[in-house]
């Protein structure tokens, strides 16, 4: 299918109106910003409503991370602790990764909504509204972040089961989760904008998620890994998401496995949590920017 020019969305020339303007008309500037914010809110609201309406999906999507936590965690825990007393609770170690998994599914689903909306035509309906295209994506990402937090929160509340104490740091962890969910949605949106068909989207996401998760230090410590594996883990942005969560969450069990350093190291230096968070934020922004550019210059 031939690519076509955008309908001059961003190039909307400063409107020179020779005729008297009808009253409900919005002028450029403040009105345009208000329109953008409205569009962001509409899209955010839509994701939130869909999230709230789909309780079954909420429950179901909590199952996989919980299985990881309870089955894999407990199984490996007993296997490891029988050999080595110095190992702390593996389930607690697994907890940040499990949180990440819980957040990832709804966030990517929000990104996927772009693809489905394109398929269903809802996207076209939005594109014909007198709003710019970038707020549509921003709103979707915020919606995905909110949904992600909504999915992550119940899991976070279960932290007590694996020995995570209920302390105020959990709020910080929740905020990090929100940012991570935003980043996931932004990446999902980026894939969605590039992939024209839902099948392509699913293939790409299916292909990426597993390796990204395994190479993130979610299931084994990210520090001091051999050669190629270490490099891959260092290059994986999820590594820093997991590590930031791990270092924010309270409780001794989370922070490491045995004597091995759980955090990634850059030539012997461990980046501080703030930098890790900044990295994720930068990644999210970059993904959103590229997606917005592609989105504004297509169709």
């Amino acid at each position: 299918m031939a690519r076509t020019e955008p309908a001059a969305v961003d190039t909307a020339a400063p409107t020179t109106t020779p005729e008297p303007v009808p009253p409900p008309e919005e002028t450029a500037g403040r009105g345009a910003l208000a329109a953008d914010l409205r569009a962001v809110r509409v899209l955010w609201q839509r994701e939130v409503i869909r999230f709230g309406r789909n309780r079954l999906r909420v429950a179901m999507s909590a199952v996989t991370p919980l299985m990881f936590l309870l089955i894999l965690g407990t199984g490996l825990n007993s296997a490891l602790s029988s050999q080595q007393d110095s190992l702390r609770d593996f389930r607690a170690f697994l907890f940040p990764g499990v949180l990440l998994m819980a957040v990832q599914a709804p966030a990517v689903a929000a990104g996927a909504s772009i693809v489905w909306d394109r398929q269903a035509g809802f996207l076209r309906q939005m594109l014909v509204a007198p709003v710019r295209r970038s707020p549509l994506l921003t709103g979707t990402c915020l919606g995905g972040a909110t949904a992600g937090v909504g999915y992550g929160l119940p899991i976070l509340c279960l932290g007590g089961m694996v020995g995570i104490p209920y302390r105020p740091e959990l709020v910080l962890a929740l905020m990090e989760l929100g940012l991570i969910a935003f980043a996931f949605t932004a990446l999902g949106v980026l894939v969605a904008v590039c992939a024209k068909r839902p099948e392509t989207f699913q293939v790409v996401v299916g292909l990426c998620m597993m390796p990204l998760l395994f190479l993130s230090g979610a299931v084994f410590p990210a520090g001091g890994l051999p050669g190629w594996l270490g490099t891959a883990v260092m290059a994986n942005p999820l590594t820093y998401a997991v590590d930031a969560l791990r270092r924010t969450l309270p409780g001794a069990g989370v922070s490491g496995l045995g004597t091995r350093a759980a955090s990634p190291e850059w030539w012997g230096w461990t980046p501080p949590v703030a930098l890790e968070v900044g990295l994720i934020a930068a990644l999210a922004m970059a993904a959103l920017a590229v997606a917005t550019y592609r989105f504004s210059h297509s169709e």
Partner: peptide, 25 residues
Amino acid sequence: VLSEPHEVRRRIGLVFQESTLDVDL
């Protein structure tokens, strides 16, 4: 339609060939 797309959009309604409703809402 070329120089004032937003003004055009404000003044038109559009019903597409395929359904473009959000079925979850």
